[in-house]
Each structure stands twice: as structure tokens, then as C-alpha cells.
Amino acid sequence: MLRIEFQVKLAGISSHLFDIDEPVKSIEIDNALPVSGDMVFLFLSVKFDSEVTVDRLSEELSSIEVVDVTQAELNPQIYYLGVMAQLSDASVLSLLTENQAIPHRIVGKNAHLEVMASVRDWNHLKEVADAIETEHGSLELLGTTQTDSIGFPLGSNKLKQSMSGKLSEEQLDVLETAYRMGYFKVPQEVTAEEIASELDISRSTLSARLRRVEHNFCALLFGPQE
């Protein structure tokens, strides 16, 4: 099985959302559920460059059938949107599933849709790429990795969604870097100094951010401290 990352030009719902007046930083499709006919419920995480009020956002989205708008608890720049859309508004996602590829992440940013998916093998990769190129023009393959397991398909990251609005960008950055470099493995594969150096922050800043992350995780699991 191969894990592939590719990018295509912005299209569908991401393209609509980037067209609104408020500057959008990124749009991620968290989940999609079929509705009758050619309609689909899309659940999106939308990150803005600056704070946006719910009223302002609702006004901006008047042309889109919005089912739900929820602002992330601790990060007012992130909104979780539920929208009713045409299947064609999520065409990359539907092309992936129609061609039996497993979507993991679909994120719109920097005028592109960045997509991570799993395919069976090289021939399957070519089938999927052909289908997407036919619909969306050129496709740029960014990465290919051999993998033994499917991992987490799109829509299975509920915990990530619950947490992402509760951690700051810096905390998420520290957490992800520490995780990817093997800080939480036993034995540790990297020292705190090495992570701090990778992030270009001091050892004490790293320690403070990691402790805040742990505190927020505990708050989510056990509720607020009395």
C-alpha cells in the first residue's frame, strides 16, 4: 500500500470559501456524509488569518447552505462549519472514493488543495491520478511512502478536532514536532534540547509549552481543575 500526497488547484467548496472577503488561511475537510441525490454534508475546519465574529461569517457565507457554525473554544480564528453542498463541491474527495483510494486529509491553502490518501500500489496510484487530472487539470505529486496500514481515514480524527481548538498554534507545533521526532517514545529518540533547537526556541519555552499541552489534555479528560 502507498501513502501519497499531492496537490491540485483549489476547487469546489474550498474555492468558494477562499473567495469570501475575510482572509482564509486554510480549509480542511473533516468529514463528508452523503445526502440523497448529488448532495453531501461537508464538515470543515476553517482557519482565518484574524479573528472573525459569527455574525460576520454568517453574512459572508450567505451564498452557501450552512447547517452549523461553531467557533473553536480557545482559538477564535478557527471555525467548524457544517454545510450542505453539491457532490461536485467535494470532487477530489468523491474522485478518491469512486476510485477506491482512501482519503486521509484534504486541506485547501496557498491556492492549492493538498491531499493525502492511500492507494493499493503504483498502478492504482496512476488510475487515481489520471481520474483527478482529467477533472482538475494537472496534479503535482508531493510525496509517496510505502505503508503497511491504512492509518486514519478522513473523518476519524474526532479527537484531533476536539483538541485542535484547545491548543495554541505554538503548542500544537511543539507537540507535533516532539511526537514526530520520537520524544514520547520509550526510550526517547530525541532530547528536549534537540527539539528546542529544531524549533529555534529555548529549552525552558519548550518545557512550558509542553506542560500547557499536558494540562489542556488533562482538562479535556478530567474536566476543569477545582
Partner: peptide, 26 residues
């Protein structure tokens, strides 16, 4: 990558997407 996975270079990506060649990827 940071996790030790092989990063596939541009030339290999181009071969993977080329119309006239296919096979197994290991």
C-alpha cells in the same frame, strides 16, 4: 521525513506518474 520515512524525489514522482511505465513500487 522526521519519522524516518523515505522522501520520494521529484524524478521518481515523475516516473510514477508517467503514462508509459508501470510496475511495483518497493
Amino acid at each position: 521525513t522526521l519519522t524516518g520515512k523515505a522522501r520520494i524525489d521529484d524524478l521518481t514522482q515523475s516516473i510514477l506518474l508517467h503514462d508509459d511505465i508501470s510496475g511495483d513500487f518497493v
